[in-house]
Design a binder for these strands. Sequence first.
DNA 1: GTTCCAATTGGAA
DNA 2: GTTCCAATTGGAA
Lengths: 223, 223
Amino acid sequence: MMSAMEIDKVLNVHNSAKKDSFDTVHHVDEPPKKAVNTYQESKMTFKGELEKREFSTLLTPSESMCSVLDIKEQTETAEENLCFKHKLKRGASTLKSASMTPSESFEDNEVLLGTGGTTVPRSEYEKLDFDKMKYTIAVRRLLNLKFTKEELATHSQTGRESPAFIGVKARKPQLDPVRVGDIRLHVAQKYNIDTSFVNNAITVALADARKSKKRKIKKNDSD
Amino acid sequence: MMSAMEIDKVLNVHNSAKKDSFDTVHHVDEPPKKAVNTYQESKMTFKGELEKREFSTLLTPSESMCSVLDIKEQTETAEENLCFKHKLKRGASTLKSASMTPSESFEDNEVLLGTGGTTVPRSEYEKLDFDKMKYTIAVRRLLNLKFTKEELATHSQTGRESPAFIGVKARKPQLDPVRVGDIRLHVAQKYNIDTSFVNNAITVALADARKSKKRKIKKNDSD
DNA sequence: GTTCCAATTGGAA
DNA sequence: GTTCCAATTGGAA
């Protein structure tokens, strides 16, 4: 008879043998001591990490570089923080916006999604026909506008491990909670539904992004 | 290096060593060849099993006995089938109702939930303040009226294995899809929401019933 | 190729 | 003690 510890060891071998090539997303930051449950809290956590300059592991390389530049100019005023958040956005306007207030730089070409300052290009936003779209699809479109496929495939909404696979599946880092929070709020208000439904749609969308990447890898391997 | 088969063997040992006392719900009927996806289909499956007199494994002992008695009287007419379904209901009126048509026996004291003929006692139904209750709570109350805690703890909504634990966790038999279907429809109409939300609430309620039973067993063990 | 679904889990609320 | 939550999965739609 094997001891529980021996069995767990084999379980981990099993897991890494089978899945290490894709599922093991390593990152250096520690798991949250306490689970983040309100998205107000998660936003604060994210900001806290920004201030400690430890958040680069949460971002893609291009964003990390951008953020390092931005941090040099960061001050403690609310206005500056808003501006800072805007600058997290990808795209050519990033540098230009540094010298403008948010209201000047974005109200014409960008649509503000939520209170976190996340925007999407107006031209893209106006393509979204919310009336004919299920909220789950709106969630997916907005996620695709604000994140790369790679980010969606490698991050989770909360950064927590699956309770059903603790110690078995690698924890994935949290998707930038500011942008996610703004998308969540925007869709919930647009459709007048509880955010819990939107959260579920986000979770499913991320799972699908992951499987999509997985399939692509498998296909390339067999070629 | 272990082969995949050896690892799977250990996985199963691990599972049964850890959970056999509670999680292994054995039943003799085969897994569905095709997944049941519409509840119209699942209803037909259930009826089909009734007619083959093989469904006793789906029921608790007391209900099985009841059903065996009822089957003796079963005919092929629609009216009789309706009556048969009514008799699946627990309670003192079971025997009495055998000599009445549904409309005579139930419209005063029972509330019809859906098209499957499932009813709940009017006195119980009127205690439910749907306006002040979330639909998730309504689902739980109605499930508790139509199923025992034991059934809720040992059955699943579809009878399918968890895709995340295929070959690891024992499949649980399907909760009587007629009663579940009527509850689903009733709540969806009452709250004017999509049945998929109701389904999710049912899934969560069953998971909680299972954990509740688990905790009780653990508590008794440690006494 | 994309979207949706439901079983499982531990822990938060 | 009860209810809700989100990560994971394979497969259906």
